[in-house]
């Protein structure tokens, strides 16, 4: 008899584990954050550095939201808030200018997050967690897609592609200062997957950028001395 009660109780517990199914075609609408249009897996954190956007005082990051449910003929507000307990950024470092809405007849939309650059960002990385709230218009989608972490800074670090070959053949010794100038000269920060001829072309553009700047009186130095490309760059 005792075992019967135990089995019944276990059965009830297991019943309670039933997935809270999203009613995709019902009247209820769900909203969730997504990585991109074709990827609805748990949302990935965003890493952003102003170092890759030379001269930018602020930049806008579009946060993608997607709908589960039926399209509406009206814009519907989306409740997005800051999770202060998981945020190290100061209120002045960011803004959500809005309107935070899922526009009419759309199954996805973007919410603008504006990040502000400051000297503070040169020395540290700061985190901002934004989370979705339920509203009269939307229930929340999958738990892994209800919040997003954005870590931002103005810091730069040696990328993997700036390896020994890159130093020897094209860009010479790495420094953060040199990397910032390289990005300013070429408009590109990531040479992952670039061919040799592309790397050479970017290095030539950088070489000419330094020469042109120096002719105009600019001084380019880093911890290694004068900033230059590799002497093997031909």
């Amino acid at each position: 008899m005792k075992h019967f009660y135990l089995i019944t109780l276990l059965g009830c517990w297991l019943m309670s584990c039933k997935k809270d199914a999203v009613d995709a075609f019902g009247e209820t609408s769900y909203v969730y954050l997504a990585n991109n249009l074709s990827d609805s897996s748990s949302v990935k954190p965003i890493e952003y550095s102003f170092a890759f956007h030379p001269g930018a005082n602020k930049d806008t990051i579009p946060l993608l939201i997607k709908l589960i449910g039926r399209l509406s003929d009206e814009d519907r507000p989306v409740e997005l808030a800051v999770d202060a307990s998981n945020t190290t950024a100061l209120p002045g470092d960011y803004e959500l200018p809005g309107p935070n809405v899922l526009r009419s007849r759309r199954a996805f939309d973007t919410i603008a997050l504006v990040l502000h650059n400051s000297d503070r960002l040169k020395t540290g990385k700061f985190k901002l967690r934004l989370f979705l709230n339920e509203s009269t218009f939307f229930r929340l989608g999958p738990p892994g897609n209800r919040y997003i972490d954005i870590t931002f800074s103005d810091m730069i670090a040696r990328p993997k592609w700036w390896n020994e070959d890159m130093e020897r053949l094209f860009l010479d010794a790495y420094s953060d200062t040199k990397y910032r100038l390289f990005i300013e000269a070429t408009g590109i920060a990531d040479l992952t997957g670039a061919t040799e001829t592309e790397k050479r072309a970017y290095a030539i553009i950088f070489r000419d950028f330094l020469a042109r700047g120096r002719e105009n009186g600019e001084v380019y130095v880093d911890e290694h001395g004068q900033i230059n490309v590799s002497p093997n760059l031909l």
Partner: peptide, 25 residues
């Protein structure tokens, strides 16, 4: 714009930088 041939057995080889080559003065 000057490009180096990656494979100089081909007439078209390598890419031109898309910014002008710097010549001083």
């Amino acid at each position: 714009y000057m490009r180096k041939h990656v494979d100089n057995s081909l007439t078209q080889s390598g890419v031109y930088p898309n910014k002008p080559m710097f010549i001083g003065g």
